[in-house]
Design a protein around this nucleic acid. Structure first.
Length: 352
RNA sequence: GGCCCCAUCGUCUAGUGGUUAGGACGUCGGCCUCUCACGCCGGUAACACCGGUUCGAACCCGGUUGGGGUCACCA
């Protein structure tokens, strides 16, 4: 075993941190430290320095948890007669309890895989992360990769630890709300073709993918994603909240079921009536469908919203969504009619 | 405990001696609408404390308190 003999002298060992300024530490406060194990293998502290000298590393940028290593490593650089690189210590990111976050103690929430599995767009996560401990000095928060490379400077790295603000067990905020909102921003604004690629991967995993989406039905696929993405937050939402557009096994949410269906028992006859009128339309499009739906409501002496929201619930299972008549076109006449006719099940299910 | 770092809304942050202390996310309220976890508008909310320096401190200095990191033959 080999220890590094720290000079027993007065004075300090120092380096100029580009973020924290000059850092000094008295020789007296540094104990002799092990650099080679008794089995002959070197420790990280030494390897790190040797590798960086070999690779001619000019800047060492790492977390503040390495600060006490740095003074010892400066000693190593000097002992090896090598130039000391520029050191930059980044603030740490802590959890709500102000603990350093780590894989060991925080598990999946700090693993990038978790974000991929929860429908995050890769760059959106990077964009969120860069804002933890750094800012451009302007109000800009959304950066393309190129913009970020252009805007980034070491000088604007902060000194203050940040808190990763996530609420465990809250389905709406399963991770930091700001991360979700940045992801949603990208989801809403990225070219739809790129979104289509990401959704494809998830759909394939979910068994929702149809190869026609890459060929004959590509336009329909992309325009439908574009129609519904506006109120989604992650790629996962397409297979869950948007499921009704791509499969028939979607679930009817309880809230809209009660509010828009069970509250109006007459829909049991009204919606099949509507289905008949849709069947007779020529052509079946956004305008003709809306005219037909509103005409029916007027004849029945009810507010259009009753028909429309009833339809939304039956057709999508959701309380909220795009404009109803856009939905009809996206679903296509056959599926619309089919689902409107089969409304009985919703009532019998709740009666039982 | 020793040593080191840090301290502005709930969270991410702007701010480098004179600002109505700004923005974003969240939250709350309103508007829009066939619906809202869309969009728009508005509100809420912060300079840890105590001393200095100064005509004047969020900004400079000192102390206090608080928080974090690190003290392995781990990386």
């Amino acid at each position: 075993m080999v220890r590094f003999k720290v000079p027993r002298q007065s004075g300090t060992v120092a380096y100029d941190d580009r973020v924290l300024g000059r850092i000094e530490r008295r020789y007296d406060d540094i104990e002799d430290f092990v650099i080679v194990r008794s089995n002959g293998k070197p420790l990280y502290l030494l390897c790190n320095v040797v590798d960086d000298i070999r690779d001619r590393i000019s800047h060492v940028i790492r977390g503040q948890d390495h600060m006490s290593n740095t003074t010892r490593q400066v000693l190593l650089y000097e002992a090896l007669g090598a130039p000391v690189p520029v050191f930059v210590h980044m603030p740490l990111t802590l959890d709500l309890q102000k603990r350093k976050i780590s894989k060991r103690s925080h598990g999946e929430i700090v693993a990038v895989q978790f974000y991929r599995d929860h429908g995050f767009i890769p760059w959106a996560l990077c964009n969120f992360l860069i804002l933890l401990g750094w800012n451009p000095g302007t109000d800009q928060e959304i950066f393309s990769r190129e913009e970020l490379i252009e805007a980034f400077t070491l000088e604007r790295i902060g000194k203050v630890n940040s808190v990763f603000n996530y609420r465990k067990d809250d389905p709406k905020f399963f991770t930091d709300p700001k991360a979700i909102s940045i992801n949603a921003h990208y989801l809403h604004t990225m070219p739809i073709e790129e979104i289509g690629q990401l959704v494809k991967q998830d759909f394939q995993a979910q068994g929702l993918w149809d190869d026609a989406y890459d060929h004959d039905r590509r336009d329909w696929y992309l325009s439908t994603l574009d129609l519904i993405r506006g109120r989604f937050h992650t790629i996962k939402d397409f297979a869950t909240m948007g499921r009704a557009y791509f499969a028939d096994d979607y679930t009817i949410e309880q809230k809209p079921l009660k509010k828009n269906i069970l509250k109006h028992p007459d829909l049991r006859t009204w919606l099949p009536m509507l289905a008949q009128r849709f069947a007779a339309l020529d052509p079946f499009d956004k305008q003709s469908a809306e005219t037909a739906a509103r005409a029916l409501a007027e004849e029945l002496g009810i507010k259009p919203g009753i028909i429309i929201n009833g339809m939304r619930t039956v057709l999508t299972g959701q309380l909220a969504g795009p404009g109803m008549f856009d939905i009809l076109v996206a679903l296509g006449r056959d599926r619309v009619i089919d689902r409107l006719k089969n409304i009985d099940g919703l009532y019998t299910m709740s009666e039982a």
